[in-house]
């Protein structure tokens, strides 16, 4: 999701374009209690241990700071009803893999997002049906809001106005005004929405529905679903990401070992990538130049590399146990 911050980074860096060696992939390994670091060209670059209790502590959703240099990971445990110190958001330095900070986030944080100014962290607290905003500098809780039962997907609009949070059992997206810290509304979307992503211009948002097999297209100005794109009943989309120009949406089809590519202007599926895909792709992310898509594959413990020119899998890189999510961090 680095594409969201590309304009900001370009301004900071004098419009320097990314080269492939500029970034590093981070993969959260749900059953390994660690993160795999991967260089796109050179392969695995080691691991960041989140906990010494693999199988008990589970890193899952991730988000990137606006400058791309810090990756945040939502960490919880396998006892969702009891808050433990492991229920946290962990900040990691992309260049060194060093853990910089832990933010307390009780209630089993599953997925997270960072505001474009880097000042707010938003998390879906899966076990307690709430979304929480956290001040990234002080670590203080800004506010909590009710969501549907089993909230999961989170994103903050690139203009910094809204946080959207999906509710899996309620089939909803909850809208929060991140400036006023107020609940705005809830929207019905597809069945079991897993993830949501804003377009680069903040005009649209796309929510994946795992059981419905759909992508709900949301008009952000009205907070209203304006279209529903079917990926097929058994497509089971989970994590989603957009190309830097917002024209292509990539949806990881976890239960079908496929990636669905949606043409967002036409509102239809443009490609389905299945051949050579790893098993149970759960996480998906697009490289800053849009030329490559990476998936985190939970059953094959790997990263699939997709060339967006041919829309085909060109490689597979080893990750850790139970690869869940994947993000692209900036190294320079």
């Amino acid at each position: 999701m680095l594409r969201k911050y590309l304009p900001l980074i370009a301004a900071l860096m004098g419009s320097v374009a990314f080269a492939s060696e500029d970034y590093r992939l981070f993969v959260s390994n749900e059953y390994g209690a660690n993160l795999s670091m991967v260089a796109p060209e050179a392969g695995p670059q080691g691991e960041v241990s989140i906990s010494g209790r693999p199988g008990a502590v589970r890193p899952r959703g991730m988000a990137l700071s606006p400058d791309g240099r810090t990756v945040y990971v939502a960490v919880s445990d396998f006892l969702p009803q009891t808050e433990k110190p492991e229920d946290a958001i962990v900040a990691i330095d992309v260049a060194t893999g060093e853990i910089l900070r832990r933010y307390r986030a009780g209630g089993n944080p599953e997925r997270i997002a960072i505001s474009p100014d880097g000042k707010q962290i938003w998390a879906a607290l899966e076990a307690i049906a709430q979304a929480v905003g956290i001040d990234a500098e002080t670590g203080e809780e800004l506010s909590r809001f009710p969501t549907g039962v089993e909230p999961e997907g989170v994103d903050v609009s690139p203009d910094g106005r809204w946080a959207y949070i999906t509710g899996e059992t309620s089939h909803t997206v909850t809208v929060i005004d991140t400036q006023a810290l107020q609940l705005v509304t809830h929207m019905l979307v597809g069945n079991r929405p897993r993830d949501v992503v804003f377009s680069p211009d903040s005009s649209r948002a796309y929510a994946s529905a795992e059981i419905g097999g759909t992508i709900s297209v949301i008009d952000v100005a009205q907070h209203r679903v304006i279209d529903t794109i079917s990926l097929g009943l058994d497509s089971r989309p989970v994590e989603v990401d957009l190309s830097p120009d917002g024209k292509l949406l990539y949806a990881a089809g976890g239960g079908t070992s496929a990636v669905y590519v949606v043409d967002t202007e036409k509102g239809e599926v443009a490609h389905v990538i299945k051949e050579k895909m790893g098993r149970r792709p759960w996480g998906v992310t697009v490289s800053p130049d849009g030329k490559t898509v990476y998936t985190a594959n939970g059953l094959s413990d790997s990263v699939s590399v997709i060339d967006t020119t041919c829309m085909c899998v060109t490689g597979e890189i080893a990750a850790g146990r139970g690869a869940h999510s994947i993000e692209v961090g900036h190294v320079d």
Binding site: T82, E83, G107, I128, P146, L183, H186
Partner: peptide, 23 residues
């Protein structure tokens, strides 16, 4: 260590104005 159950968190949450949906 404080054992904070979901019910406690939900109970605490209900006392917070921000958690009361305007809808």
């Amino acid at each position: 260590m404080t054992r904070l159950t979901r019910r406690r968190l939900l109970g605490a949450g209900l006392a917070m104005p921000a958690l009361v949906s305007p809808l």
